[in-house]
Design a protein around this nucleic acid. Structure first.
Length: 561
RNA sequence: UGGGGCGUAGCCAAGUGGUAAGGCACGGGACUUUGGAUCCUGCAUUCGUUGGUUCGAAUCCAACCGCCCCAGCCA
């Protein structure tokens, strides 16, 4: 039985190979315990989804557990607003941490005790050098660093100074606690890395209890150890930190040392996946907020209408490896369409209305047709759709001078109105001032009721429609890539790569009456258009729809549009 | 010029000495009351390069080339 969390998890990856081997050799007593460790300094994005699916998915797949842990070691950057949003996003994606919600800040006391232990062992020291001096003495990529003059202080003096750091006797930046490892190491992370810094700042959870805070490199491996994590999965840029990770768990002598494993983060074409960059888009007003449907944040794609199931299967499909990669956005859209095609109820919506009068249809008459809700899923049933003399069809479904291979309506041409009758265009009414086509006067063939002609004649197109008197009004937001370039972060300023046409808002759209009253978040397929999702901005009078994704459009290819 | 990684199709990615999975994209055809979906079908004589080992190499060895990451008291 595969749990929901493991659904979509693709075990064909090198991390699963490691887990398999560990289970076989009995490492970690055969346990698998992972964690997803976000810093609450921004909103989760699609890149985090890959990590969430990997951590929760691999744990579930292997009969293990996955914790949610907030890596809140820097009080100057972290806020409660973010922790709540992150929890909501992880839940929405479909994962559950049960009672295993943790914070690195839960461990500050233990972490402090272990720092004392390191000092006692002569493995850590208080350094009085300024940040600039430490940087200067760290050396360069090719030159070794210099040892600090404070490196060989006595254990007693270090203990005293560290306690006084904690007691608040020194200002920010005055001193730090450093690990004593190797200033000549080729790995810069091993050149006596800073373990604790002084920060007189209010912590979102710990309040003002502390004025010294552990660095990520110190807190992370030890938090993993405290939680009994077996496989600590992180991204490639931390590969260089692994020796330090191992050094720390060895020095504090924890019983079952966790192992860090690195994989390549997700990059998507035409999208920005850096918290810093996304924050800038929000703060400088390039988008409407973290949940703007153009944002790759989980809150953004949710509002856009992406189903969590689609994101999970996408994460399984792209796999997990160590190669830096840039996944095509089309791959994500494929997963979204694949899920929505199976599940989204169909609806007819006319985005750019063109009035059609059926001249031979009795005035004042209304018929109801039962139309299938989803041809992919007969169990979805049918819905009644009202039909009358005056209708709207899509402007682009008529051409006065149709090019070859255009099968839709044209003067004298017959097409099928989805689910109802064949209609034939008899007359084109134009605005005398502008020459714009404002109305089509057509006849319908009563013999074709239901959409088939008894005489066997065929029609080359079926178009969607909506009854003018019954239709609801809607605003429709059409979204396109936020960025014009494949890799917006590459080179200079990504702001220059912003797509000025990433949002087009259509008003006066006409939708089937059946959608009235639907809740925000409801997803539909608008026939021949794509998938749409009701936005919370909707009012009782006017629904607002966000386009999730278009349908594949082979006519666009043929016509070269 | 130090350290750590990575190179399999346009994009992802399996493959772990026995003769290149799969998905996306793309092309062709069938079917179609969504120009959707579905269904067939095509798409790497070759795995960064060059040598070597072997009956046999994407897999082992060597050298070279290319790309990514690291010099926060950020994570």
């Amino acid at each position: 039985m595969v749990s929901l969390a493991a659904e979509g998890y693709n075990p064909a990856n090198f991390i699963q190979d490691i887990i398999n081997e560990d289970k076989q050799t009995g490492r970690h007593d055969g346990r698998v315990h992972t964690r997803f460790p976000p810093e609450p300094n921004g909103y989760l994005h699609i890149g985090h989804a890959k990590s969430i699916c990997l951590n929760f998915g691999s744990a579930a797949f292997n009969g293990g557990l996955c914790n949610l842990r907030f890596d809140d070691t820097n009080p100057t950057k972290e806020e409660d607003e973010y922790v709540e949003a992150i929890k909501a996003d992880v839940r929405w994606l479909g994962f559950d941490w049960d009672d295993r919600l943790f914070h690195a800040s839960d461990y500050f006391d233990q972490l402090y005790e272990w720092a004392i232990k390191l000092i006692d062992k002569g493995k850590a020291y208080v350094d009085d050098l300024s940040p600039d001096e430490i940087r200067e003495q760290r050396g360069t990529l090719t030159e070794p660093g210099k040892e600090s003059p404070y490196r060989n202080r006595s254990v007693e003096e270090n203990l005293d100074l560290f306690r006084r750091m904690k007691a608040g006797e020194f200002p920010d930046g005055a001193r730090v606690l450093r690990a004593k490892i190797d200033m000549a190491s080729g790995n810069i992370n091993l050149r006596d890395p800073v373990l604790y810094r002084i920060l007189h700042a209010e912590h979102h959870r710990a309040g003002s209890k502390w004025c010294i805070y552990p660095m990520y490199d110190y807190a992370h491996p030890l938090s993993d150890a405290i939680e009994g994590i077996t496989h600590s999965i992180c991204t490639l840029e931390f590969e260089d930190h692994r020796p330090l990770y191992n050094w720390l768990t060895e020095q504090v002598e924890v019983p079952d040392r966790p192992q860090q494993i690195e994989f390549a983060r997700l990059n998507l074409t035409n999208t920005l996946t850096s918290k810093r960059g996304l924050r800038r888009l929000v703060q400088e007003g390039y988008v409407g907020g973290w949940d703007d449907p153009r944002m790759p944040t989980l809150s953004g794609v949710r509002r856009r209408g992406y189903p969590p199931e689609a994101i999970r299967s996408f994460c399984g499909e792209v796999g997990v490896a160590k190669t830096n990669s840039l996944v095509s956005f089309a791959q994500l859209e494929h997963s979204v369409r694949e899920f929505l095609n199976r599940t989204a109820p169909r609806m007819m919506a006319v985005l750019r209305p063109l009035k059609v009068t059926l001249t031979n249809y009795p005035e004042g008459q209304t018929e109801e047709f039962e139309v299938e809700n989803n041809p992919e899923d007969p169990a979805a049933g049918t819905r009644p759709v009202p039909f009358s003399r005056t209708l709207y069809i899509e402007q682009e479904d008529f051409m006065e001078e149709p090019p070859p291979k255009y099968f839709r309506l044209a003067p004298g041409r017959e097409v099928r109105l989805k689910g109802t009758y064949f209609i034939k265009c008899q007359e084109v009414v134009k605005d005398p001032a502008t020459g714009q086509v404002v109305e089509l006067r057509c006849t319908y063939d009563p013999e074709t009721r239901g959409g088939e002609a008894p005489d066997g004649r065929k029609v080359k197109a079926t178009i969607h429609w909506v009854s003018a008197a019954h239709a609801g009004d809607a605003t429709v937001r059409l979204y396109d890539n936020l960025f014009l370039t494949e890799n917006p972060a590459e080179g200079g300023d990504f702001i220059a790569n912003l797509n000025p046409k990433s949002l087009e808002t259509l008003t006066g759209c006409k939708v089937e009456p059946g959608v009235a009253g639907a809740a925000p978040g409801s997803r539909y397929q608008f026939l021949r258009h794509g998938y749409f999702c009701i936005d919370p901005d909707s009012t009782p009078e006017t629904l607002v729809f966000n386009r999730t994704a278009t349908l594949r459009d082979t006519w666009a290819k043929v016509s070269g549009k």
